[in-house]
Design a protein around this nucleic acid. Structure first.
Length: 291
DNA sequence: CTTATGACCTGATAGC
DNA sequence: TGCTATCAGGTCATAA
């Protein structure tokens, strides 16, 4: 579900509520959504639940006792950093949510809540994920976060340059659409914004990357940055599950020009948009406008 | 090395 | 109403 704009919206919402707060306890309802770094995991969904870790150690790995210093995002991953050097990384997968309960606030009972952090002022943070494609990488130092986890991701898509994009993808034989979803090439673009960016750059998503010219990379990088920035301004795209930590939807869906519009008229030329599968993902584009 | 493919999960919706 | 099939924001392990 959440791509870069949704995760950034969540980050901006959570940061003022959590910075300076001490984690007094962490309730783990489903330990298998946690990937302990010490067991070899290098991403939030690697080797989850495969290691037996004692409850007390698990709480420590999930920042118990620490004071939140800041929240950082790289691509679709959100890190919570404590002032003692510890860190965790949350990945929301398709249906993951981070929900905030203010001090004294009584939210309704929810299913699929796997983790609950309690803070010293009564604030609670819930990790909820029906499909469990998301997860939390725990027990990291901030050093390890940057040197061993985020170093495996490509440059953040929000500030991607044409030069970086070309360097990462120019020799690839993959279709453009598949390449845009590769988090090692650039971090943060998912199925929605890959289609939106390709449309705005007027590039056919099925074209092999190696066929793109210099001007194509320039247009594409600019389209990616613009599409993501506009989506953040609209609070992210809510299709079904995504909500901000207060539970309200984002409005970026109104700005989609191709995603979810297969068969409908192209906003530019009026011809029907085409739908096909590229890299096992549904892809919508205009065969007239996108070359 | 790169690229392709099933697998992992639940829930909403459409069609019979 | 109820059953089955299809589809969904993502990535990982394994095969080719």
């Amino acid at each position: 579900m959440p791509e870069l704009p949704e995760v950034e919206t969540i980050r901006r919402f959570l940061e003022p509520a959590l910075v300076g707060r001490r984690v007094v306890s962490v309730q783990v309802t489903r330990a298998d959504v946690v990937a302990p770094f010490e067991s070899g995991a290098l991403s939030p969904r690697q080797g989850r639940g495969s290691s037996q870790i004692r409850p007390r150690a698990l709480g420590r790995a999930l920042l118990a006792g620490g004071v939140v210093e800041r929240l950082e995002r790289r691509g679709k991953q959100l890190a919570i950093l404590a002032d003692d050097g510890r860190a965790i990384v949350v990945h929301l997968g398709m249906t993951g949510q981070l929900l905030l309960r203010r001090p004294g606030e009584r939210g309704k009972a929810l299913n699929h809540v796997h983790l609950t952090w309690r803070f010293d002022d009564g604030t609670r943070l819930l990790f909820r994920d029906a499909r469990r494609f998301g997860g939390v990488l725990a027990g990291l130092s901030q050093q390890q976060l940057h040197d061993q986890v985020w170093n495996r991701l490509g440059p953040d898509a929000l500030t991607i340059t044409a030069r970086q994009l070309r360097a990462a993808l120019t020799i690839s034989s993959r279709p453009l659409k598949a390449a845009l979803l590769d988090q090692e090439a650039l971090a943060g673009v998912g199925n929605i914004y890959a289609d939106e960016a390709a449309f705005r750059a007027r590039l056919n998503p099925a074209r092999p990357c190696r066929d793109l010219a210099g001007a194509d990379w320039t247009r594409l990088a600019a389209a990616i940055r613009t599409v993501l920035r506009d989506a953040i301004a609209a609070g992210g795209s809510t299709l079904r599950d995504y909500v901000t930590p207060s539970g309200s939807p984002g409005e970026a869906r109104r700005t989609h020009l191709v995603y979810g519009r297969g068969g409908l008229p192209c906003s530019r030329c009026g011809r029907p948009l085409e739908r096909l599968t590229i890299g096992q993902r549904t892809t919508v584009f205009c065969p007239i406008c996108q070359r």
